[in-house]
Design a protein around this nucleic acid. Structure first.
Length: 787
DNA sequence: TCAGCTCACACTTTTGAATAGC
DNA sequence: AGCTATTCAAAAGTGTGAGCTG
């Protein structure tokens, strides 16, 4: 896990402000969580300043290639996401940071159980537009604001073994979003009223310390959202309230519901009136009032309920047409009835909740809370948002292709998901990403696309099994367990064969710096706005919940300088669709013949991304694919989505092959024109988690337009660390002007989005102190491997 | 004037410490 | 003395709505 422990040196800095809280809890004995090299890496110069390491021999790596090639990711709460996306997902962002809801709950498979991996989350703009909620929908109203430094959220469990990641649901719910450009908490900084696409990156821990290590990146089109400071769409609000446990109070039966609030308001008014009366009354009367027994909450509630009918506010109606609301207005139903009353009034949600809880496996208790909410929403959605809304969803109604290849391991299908009639769901608004899905054949279909061999400058052949070159696609037959061989000798120091995590030797530091940067570069892609165009696909139906996986996305940033050198075309133009230098230039440019995005793609509406379609997660074997995406996937008709595609009046930036050393490698070979790509394979087993929307690896789909030099930051959660991580960075609050569009930014490590929680330390602390994990957000402490 | 943002508010959930019981 | 279960308080997460800002 990345944590303060990972960066011992940093912990000693006087600037550390926020870590005191954790330090107290830290285990007395230092438990190396990560190679000291990370610290160095964290302090590393901005990636753009680093020169790409010399390419390493690939031979050994190829031989040691593990099932990594077949890494698959599944969005467990896909149906929930799709419900939101069908309406047009909105995410609140605040200065202090706001969690995402729904959260990203993922299931990983295909990892080498003995190897350690780091999971990263970054959020990249989908396009270059700013949105406004008009006429019940989102409309692009102008150019996006200047890009902010991308930050990457590192899952608190990172690094953990493949067995660890595969044994539980992976949640990124601790990640927080903020619109504070000066944020020092390490939250992901986003612009309000912009559309974003979360991405998840799976990187071998050792890869972080290596240059050009392979990794897998996944994109779930249905997780696209528009950032807001206040909800614009009442449907979204309704969904959030019904789905998020923390908003339970705002439900009709909650104490913070409209009627309750109205009642409170009335009480306040009444109190004020009484006070005035008291003041005006004679002493005797006031005395009586003062002697009255204190009013209990129950009494107040009962009073409030009793008074509701008479309240004019009630008519204003939280939901005028809601019958349930009418029922609740019955004066006799005071809150004293509490449980009974609520049960009677409870919608399917409560029922679902109960059942969901029961169904929760003991091992899943850690995530019960979140999962529960998801479950609730999923099942409740139907009732709350019947066919009408569902139909309105942008999910394509076309039958979901089952990309079983991508997710063979999910036999059981979730009832809720099954209930989630993909077909019935209207085409979602997901723009380009989804649209591309058709082109994105399942890994099985387009193995080559899945993971084109990436001839990055690879690190010197390490003893460990090298992931590179990633030749195999997820569909590769090698996925058999047999492939998971634990070779202690070959495993890098960072990779533990067992759950225990051994601190890597500091000797790796020298190279680590660059390698750390490489990780950053991985994330660099994120910086680039996702453009629907490249991803456009023919059949939206195929895309919906599939994860688009692109491996080896950002192995390194070979040509940092170039990135900066490339001026952003124009403010109006989308962030450089061209492959940025930060991209694996190695693979790049030379192989990219068509610099420009196909016209049809450029015009691809955001809505085109159809979550409804069974759209496997986009699996991008590597960034190079993305670059090619434009040529690969013809932007075709996508079902209308709730996210209106921005009037792509913006000229599509011409594709700019990076001048950096591009190692086209096998990329071209692997890349198949979208037209020729086999249909996206859908996961036959619409498992409970991602049932209806089987994740599909989309090897060749380049959902994101490679923006130039823009690189994401990896930020550590501890604010105090940030300054140290990159002194070269402008104070935390870079003036927007300071961030020229798509300019490269220094690397930052973001560990815990929630400094106070200090997840990593919590684990240690609990382990040390024997505290039970009442509600492990992600994992069960009992089974969690120690690093 | 108004869209968008900030903040306080009330509620709920989560978390951790304290306490009681075995 | 050690462990487990329960209780309690504080912290944190939520949407709402008033007020502020440009």
């Amino acid at each position: 896990m990345l944590s303060m422990e990972m960066f011992p040196g940093l912990t000693l800095g006087p600037q550390r402000i926020g870590d005191c809280f954790y330090r107290e809890r830290e285990a007395p004995v230092h438990i190396p969580l990560f190679p000291p090299a990370c610290e160095v890496a964290a302090k590393a110069l901005p990636p753009r300043l680093l020169a790409p390491p010399p390419p390493a021999p690939v031979s050994n790596e190829a031989a040691t290639t593990t099932p990594k090639d077949e890494v698959k990711m599944e969005l467990e709460n896909s149906s929930l996401w799709k419900q939101f996306s069908s309406v047009g997902t909105e995410m609140i962002i605040t200065k202090k940071g706001r969690r995402m809801f729904p959260g990203l709950k993922l299931k990983l498979s295909g990892l080498n159980p003995s190897l350690r991996y780091i999971l990263l989350l970054d959020i990249v703009p989908v396009d270059n537009s700013r949105y406004r909620f008009q006429g019940g929908g989102w409309q692009a109203v102008g150019a996006a604001e200047a890009r902010l430094p991308d930050r990457v959220f590192i899952h608190p469990d990172s690094p953990a073994t493949g067995a660890h990641w595969q044994s539980r649901t992976i949640s990124f719910h601790y990640a927080k979003l903020t619109n504070n450009t000066l944020d020092t908490q390490g939250h992901i900084i986003l612009h309000s009223l912009h559309r974003y696409q979360p991405r998840i990156h799976v990187i071998e821990a050792r890869d972080v310390l290596r240059w050009g290590g392979g990794q897998h990146s996944f994109v779930f089109p249905e997780t696209q959202f528009i950032t807001v400071t206040a909800y614009q769409n009442s449907k979204i609000t309704e969904l959030k309230i019904n789905s998020n446990p923390f908003a339970k109070g705002f439900r009709e039966d909650g104490m913070n519901s409209k009627k309750q609030r109205d009642a409170r308001q009335k009480r306040k008014i009444a109190v004020l009136t009484e006070t005035l009366d008291i003041v005006n009354c004679d002493p005797c009367d006031s005395t009586e009032l003062l002697q009255q027994p204190p009013v209990t909450g129950a009494d107040l509630q009962a009073l409030a309920l009793a008074s509701l009918p008479a309240l004019p506010e009630t008519s204003c109606g939280f939901r005028p047409g809601d019958t349930s609301y009418q029922d609740t207005l019955v004066p006799e139903q005071s809150l004293d009835l509490g449980q009974e009353f609520m049960e009677s009034q409870m919608s399917d949600i409560s029922i679902t909740l109960a059942s969901g809880i029961q169904e929760l496996p003991g091992s899943e208790k850690a995530n019960s809370m979140i999962e529960r909410s998801d479950t609730i929403t999923e099942s409740a959605y139907t009732s709350s948002f019947p066919a009408a809304q569902v139909n309105s969803s942008s999910f394509p109604s076309a039958p979901l292709p089952q990309s079983s290849s991508s997710f063979p391991s999910h036999p059981a299908s979730d009832p809720s998901d099954r209930s989630d009639p993909q077909p019935s769901i209207p085409p979602i608004n997901y723009p380009s990403l989804l649209s591309s899905s058709p082109a994105l054949s399942s890994t099985s279909n387009t193995p080559s696309l899945q993971q084109t061999s990436f001839t990055f400058p690879t690190p010197p052949p390490s003893s460990s099994t090298s992931p590179q070159p990633l030749l195999s696609s997820s569909s590769s037959p090698s996925s058999s367990s047999n492939n998971y061989h634990t070779v202690p000798d070959t495993i890098s120091p960072h990779t533990s064969t067992d759950a225990s995590f051994h601190a890597p030797s500091s000797t790796t530091c020298p190279s680590d710096l660059q390698e750390q940067v490489a990780v950053h570069s991985l994330l660099t892609q994120p910086g680039q706005p996702l453009q629907a165009g490249p991803l456009a696909t023919d059949s939206p139906s195929d895309q919906s919940s599939a994860a688009f996986m692109y491996q080896n996305i950002a192995p390194t940033n070979p040509c940092p300088t170039l990135s900066t050198a490339q001026p952003f075309p124009s403010q109006n133009q989308p962030p450089a669709p061209a492959l940025s230098c930060s991209l694996p230039m190695h693979a790049s440019s030379t192989s990219f013949a068509p610099p420009s995005v196909p016209p049809q793609m450029q015009s691809l509406p955001f809505s085109h991304v159809s979550p409804s379609s069974a759209h496997p997660a986009l699996h991008l074997p590597n960034l190079t694919h993305q670059a090619q995406a434009p040529s690969l996937a013809p932007a075709t008709a996508f079902p209308p989505s709730s996210f209106p595609y921005p009037p792509s009046t913006l000229p599509h930036p011409p594709f700019q092959p990076s001048s950096c050393l591009g190692v086209a490698s096998s990329f071209q070979q692997s890349v198949t024109p979208a037209a020729t790509l086999p249909p996206v394979a859908h996961n036959p087993c619409t498992s409970s988690s991602t049932p209806s929307y089987p994740a599909v690896e989309i090897g060749a789909v380049p959902p994101f337009n490679p923006a130039p030099p823009y690189r994401p930051e990896m930020v550590r959660h501890h604010p105090s660390l940030l300054p140290q991580l990159d002194p070269s960075l402008p104070p935390s609050a870079p003036n927007p002007a300071l961030y020229p569009a798509f300019k490269s930014y220094p690397l930052r490590l973001c560990q815990d989005p929630h400094p106070s929680l200090s997840i990593p330390f919590r684990h240690l602390y609990r382990q040390q102190h024997g505290h039970s994990l009442s509600q492990g957000s992600y994992l069960e402490m009992s089974t969690r491997p120690m690093f």
